[in-house]
């Protein structure tokens, strides 16, 4: 598959010692949603900063849409769209004026810009509010506006840096819908950073797990989860006899009893185990009342590679989220 971004040992060192991004070599494919998952401070934003030519690398090289990020930075900026972590729209201007302002940074005619702005406003359902000043927008509306500001120039590549940071769960899921929708409608490669596991899982075709400036692993979310080989099947049997009979099927698995007539078993791959299990239960007339399959989340994958859980990080960063929320609500 054709690569649209390639980096070679891309490195950024701040103040002589802090390696924010440590010798990254990655290839991002044309048309995919490429996710970067990692805690705050992992180097995601710095990595994006270099690819969007805002941050100068300390060493290494990278090309974006075939253009060198150092030598051809102005050309790179013409072909990418950026939705930074921070809010970038001007509160004193209306939504429409913000879009118009940014459109004038690119070589597009006024007619073309207007047509595009209309299309984008429709896509995120801001048409009605486009002539209100941004300071009157709700947090979710502002984030939606930020999203389409990054699309005004019809970019080949869209960078989304923590697009739902500080949003409540409902608004976040709504944003995901918009992101999926724009991907369907527009021919654009998306680079998405997030420290929300569900976000990467819901949106990314491939994900890199990043920690301390390094990428630890890159694969599709489902491959990563399957590689954990730890699915849990929880079965509640109709009677103690059924339990005794059913238990025999799992003679080689790690298992424990949890509750009345209930067994929790760890299996490497539940997709392969389930057909056999069903056959066994029906041929031995084992009666069950309930069965639950639990697949590993990306958090287990993250834990495996970093030794830490990303969920703890999510809690720890409540303060940062509060700050962003404060700004969104202002």
């Amino acid at each position: 598959m054709e690569s649209i971004i390639t980096t070679e040992n891309l490195t950024k060192i701040y103040r002589g010692s802090i390696k924010a991004v440590d010798s990254l070599t990655v290839q991002i494919r044309k048309g995919e949603v490429y996710g970067i998952l990692g805690p705050n401070g992992a180097g995601k934003t710095t990595f994006i900063g270099m690819l969007t030519t805002r941050v100068t690398p300390t060493s290494g090289r990278a090309t974006v849409a075939g253009l060198d990020i150092l030598k051809e930075s102005l050309k790179v900026r013409k072909r990418i769209g950026v939705v930074p972590q921070d809010l970038t729209t001007d509160e004193d201007l209306t939504g429409y004026e913000n879009l118009k302002l940014v459109s004038r940074f690119y070589d597009i005619t006024a007619n073309e810009a207007n047509r595009r702005i209309d299309q984008l406003l429709n896509m995120v359902q801001l048409q009605k509010h486009s002539h209100r000043r941004v300071k009157t927008y709700s947090g979710g509306m502002r984030k939606r506006l930020e999203l389409i500001v990054g699309l005004v120039n019809d970019p080949e590549i869209l960078f989304l840096d923590e697009p739902t940071l500080g949003l409540d769960v409902n608004t976040r899921m709504q944003m995901w819908e918009y992101i999926r929708d724009l991907r369907k409608r527009l021919d654009v490669t998306i680079i998405l950073t997030s420290h929300y596991l569900e976000e990467i899982d819901a949106l990314a075709d491939r994900v890199s797990i990043m920690d301390n400036g390094k990428i630890l692993v890159t694969d599709t979310p489902s491959n990563l989860k399957n590689s954990m080989k730890e699915d849990y099947i929880t079965i509640t049997f109709a009677s103690p006899d059924d339990l005794k009979l059913g238990e025999k099927f799992f003679s080689n698995n790690e298992k424990r009893f949890s509750g009345i007539n209930t067994l929790r078993v760890k299996v490497p791959n539940s997709d392969e185990t389930m057909p056999d299990l069903i056959n066994y239960f029906s041929s031995h007339s084992v009666k069950i009342t309930r069965i639950t399959i639990q697949k590993p989340t990306l958090d287990e994958v993250f834990l495996e590679y970093t030794g830490r859980s990303l969920r703890d990080e999510e809690r720890g960063d409540a303060r940062k989220s509060m700050f962003t929320i404060g700004r969104l609500r202002r």
Binding site: K75, P84, D86, T88, T89, V102
Partner: peptide, 13 residues
């Protein structure tokens, strides 16, 4: 501080 600079810096201007 308020963000617009980030937008301008990643625009082709």
């Amino acid at each position: 501080r308020l963000g617009p600079l980030g937008r301008y810096l990643s625009s082709p201007i």
